[in-house]
């Protein structure tokens, strides 16, 4: 069993320390860097807390959008089944996202996704949901109201 505090709690106390007395003790010219470091820690903390679920959900949504069967979605990466799955093709969620997004980008660039069609609406909905989800991690203060 890993010791407490958890990774997330360590990041949080590191961020608080940096933003507290340490920041005040720094010369004016170096404070911006400390604030950037604190921000980087905060982003990492939010990503860690949310884990793999957001990218898995993104992949499930994208796979549907691109007409892929459920097999496009890898099982739990840390399960024993993963070893077998890896032989079938790209293993990680990230790699799968990359492949499917490359296909989507090709369609967009070829002008195949035009206003008025249901696919245009579906692609928009997926991209917007994903952008919102990333914003929750990268900069939650910028989330639109409601």
């Amino acid at each position: 069993m890993r010791p407490k505090p958890s990774a997330g709690e360590l990041l949080e106390i590191a961020r608080k320390t940096l933003r507290g007395d340490l920041l005040a003790a720094l010369p004016e010219g170096r404070r911006y860097e400390a604030l950037m470091a604190a921000n980087a820690i905060a982003i990492a903390g939010r990503v860690l807390e949310r884990g793999e679920a957001p990218e898995r959900e993104e992949l499930a949504s994208l796979a549907r959008l691109m007409g892929e069967k459920d097999s496009a979605i890898p099982p739990d990466l840390f399960s024993p089944a993963e070893a077998g799955f890896a032989k079938a093709g790209p293993a990680t969620v990230r790699e799968r996202l990359g492949i499917l997004y490359n296909r989507l980008c090709d369609e967009l660039r070829a002008g195949k996704i035009v206003p008025g069609g249901s696919r245009h609406r579906a692609v928009f909905a997926h991209l917007r949901r994903t952008a919102l989800d990333r914003l929750r991690e990268s900069n939650p203060k910028a989330l639109p109201d409601g």
Binding site: F124, R128, L132
Partner: peptide, 14 residues
């Protein structure tokens, strides 16, 4: 950190 300004830009573009 610049990578993390992108989602806000994406939302505005969309």
């Amino acid at each position: 950190l610049t990578a993390h300004v992108v989602p806000e830009l994406e939302l505005e573009i969309l």
